[in-house]
Design a protein around this nucleic acid. Structure first.
Length: 470
DNA sequence: ATGTGC
């Protein structure tokens, strides 16, 4: 695949074959080196019906199911535009929540081990079982699917201010639980309020550097402050929703006359029975993911209050796996588009009407989880963002899970991290090894490219203090 | 990511 550099952090794939628009990859040469198969996927996405302007990829691009992880693509429903579950990913509404405490790292230090021991049993994680919330029945699950974080808050898990700081005020509209299948409901019933596994975590962090004092202040962040970051998604429920709707779309594509270069790009017109069914089920799974983060946040708050006498205020909660109907200017014209972000974070610019009043001047917090040994970042959306108000979402893998598990010993990794003063509470040694920092790209290089490409701006760097690993 | 595999 030929990539032509057109700006310092911007590469272009000219449309060839079935491509309807060009591909645009925001990255440095170094970051591109490990993403060859994923670049082919960017070109494949450019062939989707109704795709607008370009098929984009963020600097943390790596290979994924159908779409690359780090992919952004918008389609126009009025021009036969499609929605594709592969453009959202299996972990629907996987995302990040950041809370800021009212204590500094030096205040926490004497009780850190106690705090970690307090979090350990109350943050359910690992494959399969365990959840903060035991549901009374299906009606409660339906409430979560339509109400998201709002439902959790209404039932005593959090406060009204939390909702102001959640994307979509805590719940995606137009969720349709009727299109969430029986199997998905069964899988979801016992996992409400759980981290899961893989790269999911709850981290105690310290603000290590401030890049933009004014915006950091608006976000409630200052140097030395203790924060909590939660990264998790919609567990087995979201996974099953994706599986079910990919199958349903595969069966109908021929009748819609849709051809795609890769079977994994199964899709349906946004304005079709299958498209609407998926979007309704996806929104329901997204709300499950948001309630999940709300419940875990509340569990962490109780431990922080009890052991450190500290309060945790929500900075923001945002998804990086979602498709949304949004208005964007295309060639000077406002159009309603279906924006797929898969491993890409929405990054609204200052002044955007969807921001809460106290963040409107600053812009949307963009939360980027790094890896255990390195750092995470808080960014902010930029005016005139080049990719439908999107930015990167993490470091991006360079080693497969298998590779990492072969090359890293989990116990030794924990010892190394503890030597660096990072407390670790893993759920499995293999899982920990798979998430070793060396399995990922350098998150700082990803951030530098994201900023250099004009996708976002740096606000603060967060350093790990304690890791509760899924 | 995922009761890690048709």
């Amino acid at each position: 695949m030929e990539l032509v550099q057109e700006a310092p952090y911007r590469f272009r794939i000219e449309p060839t074959g079935a491509m309807r628009v060009p591909g645009v990859v925001f990255a440095s040469r170094e970051l591109l080196g490990s993403a060859e198969n994923a670049i082919d996927q960017v070109a494949n996405v450019a062939a989707l019906p109704g795709v607008v302007r370009a098929s984009y990829a963020m600097p943390d691009i790596h290979w994924g199911y159908g779409f690359a992880i780090g992919g952004v693509a918008a389609t126009d429903p009025q021009q036969g535009g499609v929605v594709s579950p592969g453009g959202v990913g299996f972990d629907i509404s996987c995302g990040v929540r950041l809370m800021a405490s009212d204590i500094d790292a030096s205040d926490l230090e004497p009780v850190l081990e106690k705090l970690m021991d307090g979090l350990d049993p109350v943050i359910p994680r690992g494959m399969g079982k365990g959840a903060v919330w035991r549901l009374s029945g299906r009606r409660e699950l339906t409430g979560i699917l339509t109400g998201g974080s709002r439902y959790a808050v209404e039932h005593g898990h959090g406060n009204e201010r939390d909702l102001l700081r959640c994307e979509d005020a805590g719940a995606v509209a137009d969720a349709d639980p009727d299109h969430v299948g029986e199997r998905a409901l069964e899988r979801g019933a016992g996992q409400v309020g759980s981290l899961g596994s893989g790269n999911h975590f709850l981290e105690v962090q310290r603000v290590g550097e401030i890049y933009d004092r004014q915006v950091a202040e608006a976000f409630g962040l200052r140097n030395g402050q203790i924060c909590v970051m939660i990264h998790c998604g919609s567990r087995g429920l979201g996974h099953q929703v994706c599986t079910d709707h990919v199958r349903a779309m595969e069966r109908r594509m021929e009748r819609y006359g849709i051809q795609v270069p890769d079977r994994q790009l199964a899709c349906a017109p946004v304005d079709s029975a299958e498209g609407r069914a998926y979007l309704g089920a996806m929104a329901a799974a997204a709300n499950y993911g948001r309630a999940n983060r709300q419940l875990l946040a509340q569990a962490a708050r109780q431990v922080f209050q009890r052991i450190a006498g500290a309060r945790l205020d929500l900075v923001y909660d945002v998804s990086h796996n979602l498709a949304k109907l949004e208005e964007h200017a295309v060639d000077g014209e406002r159009r309603r588009l279906c924006v797929h972000r898969k491993g890409a974070t929405r990054a609204l610019p200052p002044g955007h009407p969807d921001l809460p009043p106290d963040l409107r001047d600053a812009g949307q917090p963009v939360l980027i989880p790094g890896t255990m040994g390195t750092s995470s970042y808080v960014l902010v959306g930029m005016p005139g963002g080049p990719a439908f108000a999107s930015a990167c979402h993490g470091a991006g893998r360079v080693q497969s899970r298998h590779q990492a598990a072969r090359g890293v010993d989990g116990r030794r990794l924990r010892a190394t991290l503890e030597e660096q003063g990072i407390a670790v509470r893993p759920s499995s040694w293999r899982g920990l090894a798979e998430e070793a920092p060396e399995a990922y790209k350098d998150v700082s290089a990803v951030i530098e490219a994201s900023e250099g490409a004009g996708l976002c701006r740096k606000v603060a760097r967060l350093l790990p203090v304690g890791v509760v690993k899924g």
